[in-house]
């Protein structure tokens, strides 16, 4: 049996820097085009960008370390509530909100990760779902803090960096989210290419071999879970700041499931896969759900079966497969 080669051939320094920046550059170009082409759909575009951040964070857990959970909404929701509460009670500075939300998401991920990363398979899925359910119940019961089922409303955010006011059409909100996404993509690229990232992929390949060569597997898993949780918290905070609302739906099971579906659709383990999957999912959702929400469920179910049965590596693997078929023919 041959092991996959984990370390890429040593590229030149310029190549390395280009590789790190590439996804962010693609996102920026795409965002500028979208901004010019759909100036009236900016709130929808912003939602896509926020989802991309969430899915990229899930890619660190599922795509890199191979840990399948169904509770990623837990960290997203905590970040959203954190940012909302901070803006309502303490400060309206957006960047401080992101920082606090990242801390909140990371803390929840750390506490829950300590327990759930000791298990695997069904027990792991169940505990991750249970954590989200508990948080949702807490949010709905602690009415004095979270507003219960009504959620937090009327969140206003101060100007970005003290300079740019959030406008009514959402131009600043869109640019702000895109910039956050670009920074996070650079961070993730560096993380994936670091020895830590290699260790994660090694754990995905064979945890017992990694243990045998001295990697503290459990600690690495907790670390990546906390990092991904912090990024998910940032995504939640962006959603809270941009829409001005936080409700208990942020902890919905369907959000965790959607995130997983988007990642698998695009292809787990690659940042481009997360981006493409989210884009496709959100656009199809937008179109199909505006016709009939139940049709949408049918479409997504069918897409899932197709991906699992026909394209197990996701859409990003499509070009490679097509060229291989081409060569064989």
């Amino acid at each position: 049996m041959t092991m996959p080669v984990l370390s890429p051939p040593k590229p030149s320094r310029v190549h390395a820097v280009l590789g790190v920046l590439m996804p962010s550059v693609c996102v920026l170009i795409g965002a500028i085009l979208a901004f010019l082409m759909f100036p009236y759909d900016l709130s929808f575009l912003t939602r896509i960008v926020i989802m991309m951040i969430l899915v990229v964070s899930f890619d660190l857990i599922l795509g890199q370390a191979g840990i399948a959970t169904l509770g990623h909404a837990a960290m997203y929701g905590c970040g959203a509530y954190m940012a909302g509460l901070l803006a309502l009670n303490v400060t309206q500075d957006p960047l401080l909100g992101l920082l606090a939300a990242a801390l909140a998401g990371g803390l929840v991920a750390w506490l829950s990760g300590l327990v759930l990363l000791r298990t695997h398979g069904v027990a792991l899925l169940m505990i991750s779902i249970a954590v989200t359910m508990v948080l949702q119940e807490v949010a709905s019961q602690a009415r004095w803090l979270t507003g219960g089922a009504d959620g937090l409303a009327g969140i206003t955010i101060g100007p970005l960096l003290g300079l740019f006011e959030f406008d009514f059409i959402g131009q600043v909100a869109f640019i702000y989210s895109v910039c956050v996404l670009a920074v996070i993509l650079v961070f993730c690229q560096i993380l994936i290419r670091s020895p830590f990232g290699l260790a994660l992929r090694g754990i995905d390949g064979s945890a017992s071999r990694m243990r045998a060569i001295g990697t503290p597997v459990y600690r690495r898993k907790v670390t990546v879970y906390v990092i991904a949780g912090a990024i998910a918290g940032i995504a939640g905070a962006l959603a809270a700041q941009v829409t001005g609302l936080v409700g208990i739906e942020v902890f919905n099971f369907s959000l965790s499931a959607d995130v997983m579906v988007m990642l698998i659709l695009g292809g787990a383990g690659r940042l481009y896969g997360a981006l493409i999957g989210t884009l496709l999912f959100m656009v199809v959702h937008h179109v199909a759900a505006s016709i009939d929400p139940f049709n949408w469920l049918f479409v997504i179910g069918l897409m899932l079966l197709l991906v699992v049965f026909v394209l197990p590596k996701g859409l990003v693997s499509l070009p490679g497969r097509v060229t291989r078929l081409w060569r064989r023919a």
Partner: peptide, 12 residues
């Protein structure tokens, strides 16, 4: 994923 897909199709 496959069984969630089946659930979605069933609901629809």
């Amino acid at each position: 994923l496959a069984t969630i897909g089946i659930v979605f199709i069933m609901i629809a």
